[in-house]
């Protein structure tokens, strides 16, 4: 009993020390939003990213149509995944670098349906934010959708499959998928900004370090939060015994590429 208590105390102390160090090391600095602002991509790049995004959007629409035809019960789950993205991308959370950023929320849908349907759900959220909130923009929607609704989910899904295949626990696989989807989104955004605005000295790579270096730190705690929240809602869903969940789980086990 005493041994157990000491163990708990030790791990709590370690946690506190870890947090203190983490917060001391990270001095306040400003970071960069995930969404590229309206007009802040040169015309050529704006068109390029739109062109890169549209095929995935079409594939996404087809994937959703096929899925809802095969299993109409899953429409509810689809709504849930969209709603989760809606909530999470509205939460501007303060982070260790002294600025705020928000999670993406694409992890849940990615794990449940695969990456393609997320290209539709994610871009719906981005459209809402671009039109109503002046957050992101219509000209940059292609680029923003490519990072958040295509690249993020693709990376997250790859991680999920890899971990599940190597026999790790589902909770851990879901956590990692959501966190990676979040981080990948921001990495791709930095790449997009870096190729559009290469630094005079050092070019694209120097630019990438500038855009990516700072907000990578901002985004790490948010990615952890996002992973945890995704696991939380997944656990919540698990506690109910419904047809929808049974069908979903059966589909998640089979290969759906």
């Amino acid at each position: 009993m005493v041994k157990l208590k000491r163990k708990t105390a030790a791990s709590t102390a370690l946690l506190v020390i870890g947090f203190t160090l983490f917060l001391l090391v990270n001095e306040p600095q400003s970071a960069y939003a995930m969404h590229i602002m309206e007009g802040f991509l040169p015309v050529g790049w704006a068109i390029f990213w739109w062109a890169a995004f549209i095929p995935f959007f079409i594939l996404g629409v087809r994937a959703i149509r096929k899925m809802t035809k095969e299993a109409p019960e899953l429409k509810l789950m689809l709504g849930l995944a969209a709603a989760f993205t809606f909530v999470l991308s509205a939460l501007k959370i303060p982070s260790v670098t002294g600025s705020s950023s928000h999670p993406t929320g694409t992890g849940l849908g990615t794990v449940m349906f695969g990456p393609l349907p997320m290209s539709v759900l994610g871009s719906m959220v981005l459209l809402f934010q671009a039109v109503l909130l002046a957050h992101g923009g219509l000209t940059t929607l292609g680029a923003n959708a490519f990072s958040m609704a295509v690249a993020g989910p693709a990376a997250g899904y790859a991680v999920y499959r890899l971990l599940m295949r190597s026999g790790s626990k589902q909770g851990i696989a879901i956590f990692s998928a959501a966190a990676v989807a979040d981080l990948a989104t921001y990495i791709v955004t930095s790449v997009q900004l870096a190729v559009a605005f290469p630094a005079v000295e050092g070019g694209i790579l120097a630019s990438f370090m500038k855009f990516g270096g700072i907000f990578a730190i901002t985004q790490v705690p948010l990615a952890v939060s996002e992973g945890l929240l995704t696991v939380l809602i997944w656990n919540w869903l698990q506690s109910f015994n419904t047809d929808e969940l049974t069908i979903l789980k059966r589909r998640m086990k089979g290969d759906r590429v």
């Binding site: 203190t20 917060l23 990270n26 306040p28 400003s30 970071a31 960069y32 939003a33 969404h35 590229i36 602002m37 802040f40 501007k92 303060p94 260790v96 670098t97 002294g98 600025s99 705020s100 950023s101 957050h135 900004l193 855009f211 907000f215 901002t218």
Partner: peptide
């Protein structure tokens, strides 16, 4: 723990 503005990140970009 951190004394900062926590401002919107868009402006910084």
């Amino acid at each position: 723990f951190i004394n900062a503005e926590f401002g919107g990140a868009d402006g910084a970009a």
